[in-house]
């Protein structure tokens, strides 16, 4: 089974993308070349930006089924309205009006079951695109891009993950799949980390960063996921985050110091060019920590180091 790692953070802008892109690079250099990066931030996938020479190898349009009511067959019995958990169906018997609101519909299919008259038919509705990109690093990137205006983030992530696991199902493979999660602690994040083996939390040592990381830690504990923390922008803010990690006995996988030059490089999209030796060392440390941690989890205590 491929090994699945999610990179997440409670707060936005802590450096999930930076860490994901760099990790893929360093894992491909020092661990295995079979490493795939999946951009699950479907509202604005941007991992690709850091690979200007990348080539799209395939694009897949994803649709979800939105039911439609045939008003000629509809008896306006409102059974479908009772079944709908999301209040997406409007039926007004006196006006002979029945309609389904696509933006509230979660494509659960309950209304089709409810309708005995066969007045409800499901029609495909565009949800987004899944793009596979060859970046020349590892196995490249797979990104999901949600249709503008759609609120079905979670569904898009589900489709994206389904697509990825369809192509990477090989039971014997040693490959690693990195999932770049969307920010926050809501449904899309839960969907991203639901089936992963390990979570890397990217945090920043500021009061906001600590607060949002705490929320994320609570979530991960509840989901029973093993995780470790990477502190990005170390040197900013205060030391509270360190005492929190110590108190809670959370593993610190590594630190990336705050560096203006580095931030500038990020802004220019030149994250992976002429990586300075210091950053190189930081990421190597993180990769080693992950490696060690994972091997421990699997009960294997030997390794080449």
């Amino acid at each position: 089974m491929p090994l699945k790692i999610a990179v997440a953070s409670g707060k936005g802008g802590t450096g999930k993308t930076t860490v994901s892109v760099n990790l893929q690079y360093f894992i491909s250099k020092s661990l295995t070349d079979e490493v795939l990066l999946v951009d699950c931030d479907v509202e604005e996938p941007n991992d690709r930006i850091f690979f200007p020479d990348s080539k799209t190898t395939s694009t897949l349009e994803v649709t979800h089924a939105i039911p439609e009511i045939d008003r000629n067959k509809c008896l306006f019995c409102r059974k479908c309205v009772d079944y709908c958990e999301f209040n997406a169906i409007v039926v007004i018997p006196p006006a002979h009006f029945a309609e389904i609101n696509a933006s509230l519909c979660h494509s659960c299919g309950a209304c089709s079951v409810a309708c005995r008259e066969g007045a409800i038919r499901e029609k495909p509705h565009p949800l987004g695109k899944i793009t596979t990109v060859n970046t020349g690093i590892g196995e490249g990137i797979v990104e999901g891009r949600l249709e503008v205006g759609s609120a079905m983030q979670t569904l898009m992530i589900k489709e994206l993950k389904k697509n990825v696991s369809k192509h990477h199902r090989d039971a014997d493979s040693d490959e690693i799949i990195l999932f770049d999660a969307p920010p926050g602690t809501s449904c899309p994040v839960v969907e991203t980390i639901a089936d992963v083996d390990y979570v890397i939390l990217v945090a920043e040592p500021t009061p906001f960063g600590l607060n949002d990381m705490t929320l994320m830690v609570e979530l991960l504990v509840e989901m029973g996921k093993p995780f470790g923390v990477v502190i990005n922008k170390a040197g900013l803010g205060n030391k509270e985050i360190y005492s929190f990690l110590k108190e809670q006995e959370i593993e610190l996988l590594g630190e990336i110091p705050f560096n203006k030059e580095y931030a500038g490089k990020y802004a220019e999209g030149k994250l992976l060019q002429n990586i300075d030796p210091h950053a190189r060392r930081c990421y190597s440390d993180i990769v080693t920590s992950i490696e060690r941690r994972l091997l421990q989890d699997e009960g294997i205590n030997y390794f080449k180091w």
Partner: peptide, 21 residues
């Protein structure tokens, strides 16, 4: 009756308004 619902409350209430004439 829908005051405490999760989502789509506005639509539900509008539906009620039309039904009431």
């Amino acid at each position: 009756e829908n005051a405490e619902g999760q989502s789509g409350i506005g639509t539900k209430t509008a539906e009620k308004v039309v039904e009431l004439g």
